[in-house]
Each structure stands twice: as structure tokens, then as C-alpha cells.
Design a protein around this nucleic acid. Structure first.
Lengths: 341, 341
DNA sequence: CTTGTTTTTGGAAGCGCTCCCAATTTTTAT
DNA sequence: ATAAAAATTGGGAGCGCTTCCAAAAACAAG
């Protein structure tokens, strides 16, 4: 069906290859009459220019890669990534990019992926989920000169472009909210501390406590990994330290934490207040009205692609950083609605 | 860095472009001496052949597309899709394909996607999630001759290759299990009935009941959509009909259903037995030991890619169908463990 | 040391497209 | 009307690669 070439279309219209090319690419210098004729023929035949040929001559593949390192093990557990991917897909659609997905699975060495990513011509740019293990790979990619946007602040590489949300401020905002409601023993279930997200949110928590003159009780700090199970386990672990409020670093974990509380016969927020992080749809379902920090996951994905597109067009230096804001969503799990009554 | 061409490598090695090409593609007719020399040079320089140039001349892009229609709204709610995608990604890695992800988002018309998919040369083949709305698009793609594998039985198009699990048998197996345990009023919360999965599982349910001489009570049948919320709502709706067991068409919905039961003070399985479908990790977490139908989601994804690869190599006709088996996973939510004690 | 056979190598064509440049046509000004 | 300027068009080169074919080199046998 579509084994047609530019040349074929040209012949059928009695014009030259170049003219057809101009029509396809909306170049101005084509007479209306010819343009109409060619457009009609293209429509009739269903002709599509050959992507590879185009990519070869224009040195643009119109494909961007999304790399999710293996350590993102919450990929099929936490709705965060699917949502992010939706945003990225939307961004790609808008800018006419095709999205290439590179999930690094167990069998595949980080070594093996590099050639595939840097294979010249196959990718116009790369979105790379930040990740401790991947940091060396990030360095190599950056050096290869390919436009690269890290999703989430990378570990020790600050002279590289990345997009992130302001996790520290967000955590501070969350803890401030708890403090303002009068809670005294505020704990936290953190994200994985081998990620910058995990670290930043934890630091925000500490910082907020210190600003209010609270001391940080290490028994009130438990490391999680963003999964519901770890939220459940984390809450069980933190409970002996008798928190009256807990800042949980993801909604998914918050759900697990609340489940643990309920099983212990404790009420939320009366016995323990819970504040989550993410504000994904699940956080406001029928039996759960979680107070949480809203982060614009979908928009974040869209923005990441726009950012990458910018780097592709204008060059990768100097590295730039985009930090997106978050906001507090007050629902019922912290008791603010009770106090206001 | 990698702006090198074959020609450059050739020059550095004092051989011709053709020879370097042979080395890269492992053609036999190269002397060992030269081969070693060229391989070393390639390694040293980090040279990668230009993907587009290759694709142009060989008419193979080594990219396959995965299309998820908009109607897959449980995409970021149900762990099924992320898991499937992992399997597909794994299959692609194994066979050296790049995975192109096409999420049809709101803004994008089904019309718009067709040209992007059929653009000659950009895709070697397509995996297409079955979906009622997409059926016309599927027809057009099939006609364009591009290798195409539908994921899940398509609606009215049986002369096209697809891969599916045997949903009807699986549902029968699930209901048989309930019957064998002595339950009398067996209900179902179905999947969305505008999908073949939803329909097939529901038909299996009916068929099993009929085989056992039960009449089908329509009050015991409620339509869901695979989301937890609909599972919750479905159970509330079905409860007045006093089921003693319910076949829920996905684990995610089963979780919602169980939540509804618990809120009503009903016990699982003592008051109402629940059997789910999927057997994703979530179905066997701390407070939930769901009896369910295991479907090999990950392997299903891998297999789909292998199947597509087959079509790419050997041609798309005649259409073939791959049906994968399922198995019952007996845990605690149906009471089998109690009876056995 | 020929001749014939096999293996290895280089050159050239061409995949389908874009883009430059020169040739042609059209428009405008005189 | 003609000359000059502007708009439109066609031809050719070339993007980086594979692959065919013919030339060259290596090897075997007489």
C-alpha cells in the first residue's frame, strides 16, 4: 500500500520530487494550484514519507527515549509511574515525538543499554529517571552530547539538566501543617533513602521540625520504599514511639500505614494524623480522604518533554534545572476539618 | 563523539567501507586479521552505525509499536498494564527491538494516530491492545499490511492475529471452584462489557452455572470496570441479592469488594467468599490472601513480542491465534483452607 | 611456475528523502 | 512593449548504510 515514494507522487502529479517535498514540509514557495493538486494526490494515495529516509537526511529521528532503571521496582505497584508516563506521552504527542520506552529489566546490564541509547540517529533526546545506580550511565550519556533531561534530581551530578519538584519545601509545608494543628510527636515514613526524592523529603521533614524547635527523635523516622507494604510495616515499626502524626512520603505508603492503624484499632486522625504525598486519584477514594501534598505528575511529564525539546533545539549547555511547585491538599486525615468546625 | 561513519572507521583501518560493514554485521567473508583490527577500532572509537541509514537501506527499523487506546482508562489504576508493559519490554530487549509507546490520550483523535503508525519505515510491527473503539483502526492497520498482533481477542475481527488468555475457561474454572465448595448463590462483578475480556469472563460465569444446573439470577450480576472503586460499588449493589460467593473479574475490583464487605461487618470468606482474577502481587499482601485466577501477564507480554516477531519474519498470513492458559490459585478468600482442616 | 579455485576485498549503486542552486516562469515596474 | 525583480520549479548531490559484482589476493593442484 504505502510503498510509494516521493518520486511516485511527483510523477503522478507531473511535478518534481522537490516540489512534492516542499508541499509535505509546508515550504512557502509553491504555487497554490500545484500545492492543491499534490495534496490531493497524497491524500488519495495515503502516501507517507519514509521515516528513516527523512531521519537520515535531516539528522532528526523525532523520537525521544524514556529510560526507567531497574531500581524503579515500584513501577508496577505505584500509580505514580503510569501517570508520569501518560504525561510524557501527552507531551510527545503535542510535539510530534514518538516515545521510545527503555525499561531496564533484570536480564539487561546497564552496559548493554548504553549502545542502544547512544546509537547515533535513533534518538533525538533522552528522559532518564534519576537513580543511584544509573548515575554513571547518566554521566556517559551526558558526555556523548545527546540532549538529556534527568527526571528527578540526580545524585552527585548537578551540572546536568534536570526537572524535579521541590521536595524539600513540599515536605516542610506538610510538616508545618501538622505543627500548626498542634501535633507534638510527628514521625515520618520516608521514601527509599538511596533516591534523592527519599532523601529530600526526609530532609524537609527534619528541617521543618528544627525550625519549630522540635528535636528529631530517630525512633519516629522509618525508611520505606513507596510500596503499600512498606507503609504498613513502617507504621507498625513507628507505633511504639507513639507518634500523634506521621508524614508519609507517598500516598501508596500512607494507605498501608492507615491499614496498619485500623488493624490496631486506632483512628485517623483522632489517634494518629496522617499526611501523604502525591495526591494521585487513589488518595481520595470512598473510604479515604487523605490530606496530602499534591504534585503535578501529569504536567510534570508534559513539561519534561517540552524541556527536552528545548534542549534539542537550543543546545544542552548550560545545564538548566526546572523545579515545579507543589501544594497542600487538606482533606480529612489530619483533622483540620474537625478543628475548623 | 559519535559522528563517525563507516567510512571513517574504514579509513583508520586502511580498508574499505564494505569490509567494515561486513565486520559489523558478522558476515563470514572477512579475514581474521582484518576483522580483529576493525573490531578494535570500533571499540576504541565507540562507533555506532547510524540507525536511520541502516533502517533506510535494510527496510527494517527494529522498532515495534505498542498502542494503548484511550479507553484503557484503568491504565494508571490497575497494575495489570504496567506489568504487561514490563513483559513486552523484556520481549523487546531479548529480540533487540526498540519499543515505541503510543498512548492515545484525550486530545488525540484515532484519526491522527493512523498516519503515525503506518508511516512507512518507522515500525516493523504493532502490538495493539484490543478495544471496541479501536476496532476500525485495527482493520485499517491490518489492511495496510503491517505485521499486527492484537492483545486480547478483538471484537468482530477474527481473521486477524491475536494473543489472548482463555478467559471463558478461566471463569468456568473459578466458578467451578466456588460450586465445589458448596456455595449456592454465586454472583459476579464483571469487567467492562464493552471489552471482550469483560464479556468472555461473564460468559464463562454463566456457562459454569448452567453446567451445574444453577439458574442465572440477574440480580447477582453487576457490571464493573476493573477499578477498585467499581469493585466497591459493585459489591454494595450486589449485596441485597444475598450472594454467598462472588466471582470478581479482577483482583483490583476484588479488593474494593472486600473493602465494602468489611465495612458492612461481613467476613470473607465466612459470610461471602470472594474469588478474583489476575493474581498480581497485590492479591497476596499482608491482610489479603485472595483466591484468584492466575494469568501469566508478564510472560504474556514476552510472548506477544515473540509472536509479532514471527509475523514480521514469516509474514502475516494466515492469521494465527495464541491462547495462553491460566491456573487457579487457592488461598484463603474462598474458604477452601477451612474446609480442608 | 602455470592454471584453476576459493577467499577476501573494494567500488558503485541505490534505499527515499531534504536542500542548495540554477533554470524557468510569473509578476511588477518602466 | 521590455527589463528587472520575484516567485516557482527541477536537477543534483548527498545523508550513512547494505549489497551486488567484479577485481585482487591467497591457496591448491598439476
Amino acid at each position: 500500500m504505502s510503498n510509494l515514494t516521493l518520486e511516485d507522487i511527483a510523477k503522478r502529479c507531473g511535478v518534481s520530487r522537490s516540489t512534492v517535498s516542499r508541499v509535505i514540509n509546508n515550504h512557502p514557495n509553491v504555487s497554490d494550484k500545484v500545492r492543491k493538486r499534490v495534496q490531493k494526490e497524497i491524500k488519495n494515495t495515503g502516501f507517507r514519507p519514509h521515516a528513516a529516509a527523512r531521519a537520515l537526511v535531516s539528522q532528526r529521528s523525532w523520537t525521544v527515549g524514556l529510560v526507567l532503571p531497574r531500581s524503579v521496582n515500584s513501577f508496577f505497584t505505584d500509580p505514580y509511574y503510569p501517570r508520569l508516563i501518560q504525561g510524557i506521552a501527552q507531551g510527545c504527542n503535542q510535539l510530534k515525538y514518538t516515545l521510545g520506552l527503555y525499561l531496564i529489566t533484570d536480564s539487561e546490564d546497564e552496559e548493554e543499554i548504553f549502545p542502544r541509547l547512544s546509537r547515533s540517529g535513533s534518538l533525538d533526546g533522552i528522559l532518564f529517571q534519576s537513580d543511584q545506580i544509573g548515575d554513571q550511565l547518566i554521566d556517559r550519556l551526558a558526555q556523548s552530547g545527546i540532549p538529556l533531561v534527568i527526571i528527578g534530581r540526580p545524585f552527585h551530578n548537578d551540572n546536568i539538566s534536570y526537572i524535579d519538584i521541590d521536595n524539600i519545601s513540599a515536605a516542610i509545608m506538610a510538616v508545618n501543617h501538622l505543627v500548626s494543628l498542634g501535633y507534638q510527636r510527628i514521625g515520618t515514613i520516608t521514601g527509599p533513602l538511596n533516591t534523592t526524592v527519599g532523601i529530600d523529603r526526609k530532609n524537609g521533614y527534619r528541617q521543618a521540625l528544627q525550625e519549630h524547635g522540635f528535636s528529631v527523635d530517630e525512633d519516629l523516622v522509618v525508611e520505606g520504599d513507596f510500596t503499600e507494604d512498606k507503609g504498613y510495616a513502617g507504621m507498625l515499626k513507628i507505633l511504639p514511639a507513639q507518634p500523634d502524626a506521621v508524614f508519609v512520603a507517598s500516598d501508596q505508603m500512607a494507605i498501608g500505614a492507615i491499614r496498619a492503624l485500623r488493624e490496631k484499632g486506632l483512628r485517623v486522625p483522632e489517634d494518629v494524623a496522617i499526611i501523604g504525598f502525591d495526591d494521585l486519584p487513589l488518595s481520595n477514594s470512598a473510604d479515604l480522604h487523605l490530606t496530602t501534598v499534591h504534585q503535578p505528575v501529569y504536567q510534570f511529564g508534559v513539561k519534561a518533554v517540552e524541556f527536552l525539546n528545548d534542549l534539542i533545539i537550543t543546545g544542552t549547555t548550560p545545564p538548566r534545572h526546572i523545579i515545579m511547585g507543589t501544594e497542600l491538599v487538606v482533606r480529612e486525615s489530619c483533622g483540620a476539618h474537625i478543628q475548623q468546625l
